[in-house]
Nucleic acid binder design. Sequence first.
DNA 1: GTATCTGCAAAACATTTGCAATTCT
DNA 2: AGAATTGCAAATGTTTTGCAGATAC
Lengths: 136, 136
Amino acid sequence: MISIRIKQSEHKLREIGVSPSHSRMKIVSYLIGNKNHPTVDEIYSALKPSMPTLSKTTVYSTVKLLVDKGFLLPLFIDENEVRYDPDVSVHAHFKCRKCGDLHDVQASVQKIYNKEGHLIENTHIYFTGICFHCKK
Amino acid sequence: MISIRIKQSEHKLREIGVSPSHSRMKIVSYLIGNKNHPTVDEIYSALKPSMPTLSKTTVYSTVKLLVDKGFLLPLFIDENEVRYDPDVSVHAHFKCRKCGDLHDVQASVQKIYNKEGHLIENTHIYFTGICFHCKK
DNA sequence: GTATCTGCAAAACATTTGCAATTCT
DNA sequence: AGAATTGCAAATGTTTTGCAGATAC
C-alpha cells in the first residue's frame, strides 16, 4: 500500500521535473494519502517518527518547490496557518470553526462584476461554519 | 473633510459600543477613508507621522476590537498578511499578484454541492491575477 | 568529485502578552 | 482616585536564510 504510494510519488516528482529524493517522496506520499490539507507542522509531525533525521527546513523547502511546480496549492484560510492541497483542480473548501478541519466542497462562482477589467487567473472560494460532524 | 470623518468615526464607535478614544477614532477614520484594505503595518505607518506616540500595539488591539464587534472583516488572502476591510457586506476581492493591491469585486457563488451538510455561515471569494492597472 | 539535498542554528517577521505609565472622567 | 487606554519591551510562533555536512549520481 505505502510502497505503491511511494512509487506514485516518485512518478509524480519526475513528472514535474523534481528529482525524487527520499524526503520528497515521503512528503508527497503523505500528501497524496491524506485528505486533511496539512500544514507544514502537520506534515513534519506525521513523518518525524519514521524519519528521525527529518527537519522542518526540508519540509518547508519541499512544499515551496511543489507549490512552484504547480503540484501543490497553498491555502490561506486562517490567520497564521498555511495549508497545502495536492488537489489543484478547481474546487472550494469548507473550514469548520469548531474542530478546525478543512473539507473539500464543490462550488462555482456565478457572476463577476469585473468592470475594471482585471485579468483573473485564479478563483478561490471557501466557506466557514460548523461541519456535519460538529453540528450533531 | 477629515473632521467630518472623525465625527463619523466617533458615531460608529459609539454605535458598536466602543468608547471613542483619540487613537480609535483616527484608526477608524483611516479605515473609512481608504479603500486599500490595509494591514496593521499600513495603518500604523499612515498614522504615525501625525501621531508620534502611536504604537503598533494600539493598532493591533484596536483592529482586534473592531473585528470582534463586527465592524471590520479580516481578510486572509496572502500568506503572512492580514488585511482589514471596513465593508462587511457580502462581496469578493481581487488581489493583483504584480502590485499586490486588493480591489473590491462583486461576485457570488452559483452552486454548492454540500452533500455532507455542513452548516455554512460565511462565504469567502477572492480572485488573483493581474489588475487593470498592471495589465497595461 | 561535483552537484544537490539536508539539517542545524540564527535571523527575520508578525503578533501577543505583561506590566508600567498615561490619560480620561 | 479609579478605570480604561496606551506604549514599551520581551516573549511567542512561524518561516527564511546561511552555511556546513551528508548524500547521490
